[in-house]
Design a protein around this nucleic acid. Structure first.
Lengths: 342, 342
DNA sequence: CTGTTAGCGCTTTCAA
DNA sequence: TTGAAAGCGCTAACAG
């Protein structure tokens, strides 16, 4: 008899009436069908089908005291790096009862603080945040939040909870070693958008060159703008003009590296003979350029997936993972930085 | 006296007690401060500060009968095209009381159906879906949903509600015209991942060439794989092998075009003299390659932003927009397809 | 301008 | 096994 008035979605009560059982039974069936007798189960299933019932997640969350939501805070969308991480996250969440809620900080500390407070207020099941450079305030909130917190894409001595990533300094050192091994001596770098991780790459790069006594600030092309291929071309040109002796360039992002390659092509500078190029992140395109571009593979998809794995482990099976999960970075050395026949 | 027991977040009741007012007043203040007297407002603000109160969005949504959520369904994350759209959406939503909830269909019709049902069950304020190729089932749900529905990235004779985008057929015709005007005659194409929009581009391309009597299937490089630079190289190589007479290539995605360019470089084929290349979407990198790559600019950011503008218009100001919003596509003709001195 | 009182749709004791 | 009833935190009449 429970006719729907066209406009209203069916509620659990409607289903209960339709199936002639109590709402409790319907609710129970939804989260553990085994606890309901075969007979009622059939009736309820039929009722759900007839009424086209879909439980309201927010009512569930409210009643249960917590949302089946995993919050994810990332700085940006323009950067494929984060798309890859999100893919890893989504693929791993798929099939679980959890939903992903994404927040974009726009590389803005204040916005990050705001979003962390907002997300935490929704009592998510867990929270994934980018990097290790949260503000004092955010850190306090996070420390007291009673849910798994995963920091990604970096490494920290003192993680809030779990940190999954790698040391940017070490990653960059790999690049410098590689350049030197290939006989490059006048090594410069291109760096854009000074987010904390890029900054650590720059610092690591400088330290690494310093340690080998081959550091020269003239060979740096720096910009606060967002990284892009065009910016890569521009910065490469700039560095080339101010330090003509340069013979190798480390690009803190792959799009800069692509831009550097094109600038060299445009100027008739041969890569890798006159100029070695190495990028960072190893995006798909790097292997397909001509010559193929070397880059530091950062396994972004895996980092995203691992973050969820850790969270699900904690949430569902109670399994604990180590607080530091190091994802190996590897230098994919391709034609753009290989000039020695080995 | 309302001491918090450390673990529990403050509720609106706590705030009301702390400020010695009724909960209604607190609630009211939250959504329209002007309706509360100066005096109480101060007291409430203080209480909120002391208790560190953040309203629970799901309780709000439940009580209000609808979530302040705008659902967005897109097929993929790997494609920068959708990152751009999401940026437009987020930028436009920022500062409004709405939250964005993203769903990924993975180019899978069934998953799309499931997500549409799921999202609608949450009674969002509005829903943005990609394309116009929803299933019968999904369409029925969408038709009866009592919220603004915006379809993006395509054009349809019969939109569900509002459609924002452009005709892929017409866009492709622009490319063919351009090639012909530049004196190219043996025009081929590279197409990957047969999603409905890419498919329409292919159909439009064929029709356009047919109409001019210059269609040759041997000049097509097709693949069901996801579009990528590497795939672009591979397909370009394939087409070059099977149709050596080809002198121009339209790539249904920019990464394919980039791959095509590199394949030409690797084979010593000069662009644009021996081979004209035009891509689709005009990603940032296209202007920075050497030679710069022509591409069809699809204004993805604007489409995303416009979708939200339309939705906010309907939701907040009651303003109505036309059901068809056409976003002009323009061919950015750059060096890669210009071989006539004009 | 302010407070009381029902719910929103669902979960969850607690009895039956 | 099942169900009645009491909330989860908030909003929205409806009185004052």
């Amino acid at each position: 008899m429970a006719k729907q008035t066209h406009k209203k979605r069916a509620t659990i009560t409607d289903v209960a009436q339709q199936a002639e059982v109590g709402v409790t039974t319907v609710s129970r069936m939804l989260r553990d069908p085994a606890k309901v007798s075969e007979k009622l189960r059939k009736r309820i299933e039929a009722a759900i089908e007839i009424l086209n019932y879909v439980p309201d997640p927010k009512a569930q969350a409210l009643a249960a005291g917590k949302a089946q939501t995993i919050g994810v805070l990332i700085p940006s969308l323009s950067n494929i790096v984060f798309s890859d991480i999100l893919r890893g996250i989504h693929d791993q969440v798929k099939g679980t009862p959890y939903q992903v809620q994404i927040g974009y900080t726009g590389y803005d500390k204040q916005e990050e603080d705001r979003l962390i407070a907002l997300f935490l207020a929704q009592r998510p099941s867990a929270l994934v945040v980018t990097g290790i450079d949260q503000s004092e305030k955010a850190r306090a909130l996070l420390d007291h939040a009673d849910v798994p917190i995963v920091q990604i894409l970096d490494d920290a001595a003192d993680p809030i909870d779990t940190v999954i990533g790698f040391s940017h300094e070490k990653a960059v050192d790999l690049v410098v070693q590689h350049f030197l091994a290939q006989g490059y001596r006048a090594i410069g770098c291109l760096v854009a958008r000074f987010d904390p991780r890029v900054q650590r790459r720059l610092m690591g790069f400088r330290a690494s060159l310093h340690a080998r006594g081959v550091y020269d600030p003239k060979r740096e092309g720096l910009s606060r703008e967002a990284s892009s291929v065009q910016l890569g071309r521009f910065l490469m040109g700039q560095v080339l003009d101010q330090a003509p002796d340069i013979d190798a360039i480390f690009c803190a992002n792959d799009d800069l590296a692509l831009g550097a390659l094109f600038e060299c092509q445009a100027r008739g500078i041969s890569v890798p003979d006159q100029m070695g190029i190495v990028g960072f992140n190893d995006l798909e395109m790097m292997a397909a350029t001509h010559p193929a571009l070397s880059s530091v593979q950062t396994h972004r998809y895996e980092i995203g997936a691992k973050a969820i794995e850790v969270i699900l482990g904690r949430l569902q099976t109670g399994k604990r993972f180590p607080n530091h999960i190091n994802v190996d970075v590897t230098l994919q050395s391709r034609a753009s930085s290989l000039r020695l026949t080995l």
